[in-house]
């Protein structure tokens, strides 16, 4: 007679290793006093152009660095390096998202304590990055006006898991008949109370407001107590 199989209770997170490492990274960032902002969006929504402008604007007043993930090429790192800050490319090969291990390896040799901000640009993808914690303090989801107002409804998980939203390419909103009120309603339907910014990397619209918000979030985090 064979024994009946029985159920062994496990209750273990599938991405436990990533979560543990992300937690360790977050502790390291806190000890070093560096505020970490990650960017997620679909390919082509303007993450790199946005970040390029932000790095240039901040470059004079804060110590910053950036990591940028792509499936292939270091084109984005080359673009971002023009802002004059340290940039490292993470080439993921076939992997469609960044994970905590990739971030940890990319940071090797950098003195985090000498930084005020670290930006992490994820691989362009609105699905896979949502499952992986990178140890960041702030996760920003971007969508461009050319993508359609219903993007948040199509990808609720990534919008729900982000902390703030940025609508990019706002300078061409009229040309593509972008409906701001509908987009805002859709973002807030999947993430009530989320702060949303309208920006254009080309005209510079909204970038100062976004930066001010990130700076105040960092200050609030560093405040003792």
């Amino acid at each position: 007679m064979t024994a009946q199989p029985r159920i062994v209770e496990v209750r273990q997170k599938v991405l436990r290793r990533n979560d543990v490492l992300a937690g360790e990274l977050r502790d390291r960032f806190r000890e070093a006093g560096v505020y970490v902002v990650s960017l997620v969006s679909s390919p082509g929504s303007g993450k790199t152009a946005f970040l390029e402008k932000i790095l240039t604007m901040m470059g004079r007043q804060a110590r910053i660095a950036a990591l940028v993930g792509d499936l292939a090429t270091d084109n984005d790192a080359v673009r971002l390096a023009r802002a004059g800050v340290p940039v490292r490319q993470i080439v993921t090969g076939t992997v469609c998202h960044l994970d905590a291990v990739m971030v940890q390896s990319a940071l090797e040799g950098w003195k985090l304590a000498e930084l005020d901000y670290l930006f992490i640009e994820n691989v362009g993808n609105l699905v896979c990055p949502s499952s992986y914690d990178l140890g960041e303090n702030l996760r920003v989801v971007l969508m461009s006006v050319t993508e359609g107002e219903d993007k948040p409804l199509k990808y609720p998980t990534i919008f729900n898991g982000a902390d703030i939203a940025v609508v990019t390419k706002i300078d061409i909103a009229a040309a593509v008949e972008f409906d701001w009120n509908a987009a805002r309603a859709n973002i807030q339907a999947v993430r009530p109370e989320m702060e949303i910014f309208r920006v254009s990397a080309r005209s510079g619209e909204g970038l100062t407001e976004w930066l001010a918000s990130v700076e105040s979030r960092r200050a609030a985090k560093n405040r003792p107590g």
């Binding site: 029985r6 159920i7 496990v10 273990q12 997170k13």
Partner: peptide
């Protein structure tokens, strides 16, 4: 925005 459940990705048990 207050999610209580729904983010789970967890091995609950093994039948063995």
């Amino acid at each position: 925005p207050d999610v209580v459940r729904g983010r789970e990705l967890e091995i609950a048990g093994l039948e063995m």
